[in-house]
Design a protein around this nucleic acid. Structure first.
Length: 285
DNA sequence: CTATGAACCTGACAGC
DNA sequence: TGCTGTCAGGTTCATA
């Protein structure tokens, strides 16, 4: 699921439902879900048993559960992953990939469900503070330690298109296709604007747009168009009703009335207002 | 370094 | 009904 707000909704759910509990039995139902755990599924199952979850953390779209021995259980939801807290007696989901049972009297277990299996889990050695495999992921705009000045200069140093840079998780994390389009609409900038032509204030506007739209989405429980994007209890958010351009091709821009346009870009869709966000003279993709 | 395309998967939906 | 093609909130790798 997806972008920062939706992942943060899940993190909060894990914080309430899983922190403080000791893992008992882990079952890898589909090996692909732990392909990033190089020692393999059996190792993953065996080594998690008996460990206690200490907290629930997130950077960008990655989640991890620090364990009492300093290691961490890392998870990424990919395009369709869900972390669900379900009664142990509940029937298995069609796309159940990993099950974690706990050593307590609570009747719930944690399930990693993922239709497309782009997501996955791994055990990170000594990764409680920050798992090594995600050390290249930049801080996200809602992180209190996010360095705006460093971001702005690194951003403008890139010689690429604006949206491509915004989606680069090593520059700023957590922004995906929906919130990139929404942030660009708020900043009134076109996705193909060359980064090197941006003034400092425009970079700030994009970042502010991203931060605002993601914070608003978070307040509403995240964005979901369907049952694929849900919290740990399987509930959908409501932010789809507030999106200004994403998925709104042909509908009038709320600022100027011009129909929102959809264009294919980077093997996906970009939505923008052709009036508020005019194409640059020399677009850069 | 930058850009592109493909790969990894399953399912929903539109159109014929 | 059933086929085909398109699309989907992501990341990574190989190739120019």
């Amino acid at each position: 699921m997806p972008e920062l707000p939706e992942v943060e909704v899940v993190r909060r759910g894990l914080e309430r439902a899983v922190v403080g509990r000791t893992i008992d039995t882990v079952t890898v139902v589909h090996p692909r879900a732990v392909r990033r755990h190089l020692p393999g599924g059996a190792d993953f199952e065996a080594r998690l048993a008996g460990r206690t979850v200490v907290s629930a953390r997130r950077r960008g779209k990655y989640l991890w559960l620090p364990l009492d021995d300093g290691d961490a259980l890392l998870a990424h939801l990919g395009m369709s992953g869900q972390l669900l807290v379900r009664p142990g007696a509940a029937p298995d989901e069609t796309h159940l990939r990993v099950r974690l049972r706990f050593r307590d009297r609570l009747a719930t277990e944690l399930r990693f469900v993922d239709q497309r299996t782009f997501g996955g889990m791994a055990l990170s050695d000594g990764g409680a503070e920050l798992p090594a495999v995600i050390s290249h992921i930049a801080r996200d705009p809602l992180d209190p330690d996010f360095d705006e000045a460093a971001f702005s200069s690194a951003f403008r140093r890139r010689r690429t298109g604006l949206k491509r840079a915004l989606l680069d998780q090593s520059l700023v994390s957590g922004v995906g296709n929906i919130y990139a389009d929404e942030a660009l609409w708020r900043a009134r900038l076109h996705y193909a604007r060359p980064t090197e032509t941006l003034r400092r204030g425009q970079v700030d506007a994009v970042l502010a747009g991203a931060r605002e739209v993601m914070a608003e989405a978070l307040e509403q429980g995240g964005t979901s168009f369907d049952s694929l994007y849900v919290d740990v209890n399987g509930q959908s958010g409501y932010f789809d009703r507030t999106l200004e351009v994403y998925g709104r091709a042909g509908q009038p821009c709320s600022r100027c009335g011009t129909p929102v346009r959809r264009e294919a870009f980077m093997n996906r869709s970009s939505f923008f207002c052709p009036s508020c966000q005019p194409r640059p003279r020399r677009p850069r993709l």
